[in-house]
Simulated scan of single mutants.
Amino acid sequence: MNMFKGKKYICSRGVAFYPEKEMQVLKKQAEKGWQFKKMNQAGFLVFEKGRSEEKAFSVDFFDGSSEELSEYLVIYEQAGWEYITNYKDKYFYFKADCDTPTIYSDSESYWIRMKKEWLWLLVRTLIYLPVGIGLLVLLLLTKATENSMLSNIVVRGTLLFLGTLFTALPIGVVISVLFSLVIYSDRTKYYNQPERFAKRQKIVRDAIFLTIIGFVVGVLLSILLKNSF
C-alpha cells in the first residue's frame, strides 16, 4: 500500500479470480474515507481521500459490444448500482447501499458470467502460444547453426526466455482456471453473498499452490528444452 499526494494505491487482489476479495477491499477503504477511482494499467487500485461511507461494491465482467454497453449500465442503474469506472472495458466497478441486491438472480447466471470471463482470458492469451512455440522451434532447428546472430548466446537466451514466457502464459491461465474450479467448486452458490465467499478465499495459500504447480511445469519445460540451448 502506498500513499502519494492525497491518493492511495493498493495492489489488486486479482480481479479475474478474486473479485469478491476486491469488493471487500473497496468497501473497507470507503469506510475509512478513501474513495475508489480506478484500477491503473499497473494493476493498482487508486483511491482519493474523501468522506467516509458505508457502501457495497460490485465488480462485474462485461463481454458485450460497445453498442450494448449503455443498456448494460442502465440495467445496473435501475437495480440501484452506481457506475464508478471500468478496467480495459471488461471489468466494471459499481457501488450501492449495503442492502442493495446483487445483479445476479441465481447461481446459473453467475456461472455463465464466470465461463465467459475465463474463456475471454484464455482466448486473450492463446494468441501468444504460436509465437512462443515458433521461437522454441527456431531454437531447436538452429542449435548447430553457423549464423552469427542465431548462434549468439545473448540472442539465444532472449529467444528462450520469450519462447518460454509466451508458451507458459496460456498454460498458466488454464491451470489457474482449473485450480479455481477445484478449490472453489461451490463458488456459484454465493452469487448473492460475495462477502461470505470472500472469507473463504485464501490468496496466499492459493499463490503457494499455484507457484508449486508452475515450478513443476517449468521443470518439465526445461527438460524438454534442455538440448535447445
Rank of each mutant, 00 (worst) to 15 (best):
S151C: 10
S180M: 13
L159M: 13
V182P: 08
Y184C: 11
S180K: 13
Y184G: 06
L178C: 05
F166Y: 12
T167G: 01
N152F: 01
L165Q: 02
L160E: 12
L169D: 08
V177F: 07
R156K: 05
T167Y: 05
I175N: 09
L160I: 05
S148V: 14
L162T: 06
L160F: 10
I175V: 14
L165C: 04
P170H: 04
L162M: 13
I153R: 02
T158A: 15
L150V: 01
A168K: 11
G157M: 03
V182Q: 08
V173A: 02
L162R: 02
E146G: 15
N147W: 12
S148E: 15
L181H: 11
N147Q: 14
L181K: 15
R156A: 03
S151P: 03
G172V: 07
T164V: 06
L169C: 07
V174N: 06
V182W: 05
L178G: 08
A168Y: 12
G163P: 00
Y184L: 02
S148Y: 07
S151Q: 15
V155D: 00
L165G: 01
S151I: 02
L150S: 02
L150N: 04
L159Y: 07
I153D: 11
V182G: 05
F179G: 06
F161K: 00
I171C: 07
T158N: 03
S176Y: 08
T164D: 04
N152Q: 04
I171G: 05
G157R: 04
M149Q: 11
G172W: 02
V174D: 13
L181M: 13
T164L: 08
F161W: 05
L159R: 02
F166A: 00
L150P: 00
R156M: 03
I153Q: 13
E146F: 10
L160K: 06
S176N: 11
I175A: 14
S151T: 11
G163W: 00
V173E: 11
L150E: 06
V173T: 08
A168G: 10
V182R: 09
S176H: 11
G172T: 09
L159G: 03
V154D: 09
L159C: 03
L169I: 14
T167L: 12
I175R: 13
A168V: 07
I183K: 15
G157W: 01
M149L: 14
T164C: 10
L178I: 12
G157Y: 05
R156V: 01
F161D: 01
F166E: 09
Y184D: 10
V155M: 00
V177Q: 05
L165I: 07
G157F: 00
T158M: 14
S148A: 15
I175D: 14
V174P: 04
L165H: 03
V154F: 14
E146W: 08
L181A: 09
E146L: 11
S176P: 00
F166L: 07
I175W: 06
S180G: 09
V174S: 03
T167S: 14
Y184Q: 12
N152V: 00
F166H: 01
Y184H: 11
T158Y: 11
M149N: 08
N147G: 11
T167Q: 01
N147I: 02
N147Y: 10
V174E: 07
A168S: 12
L178M: 14
G172R: 10
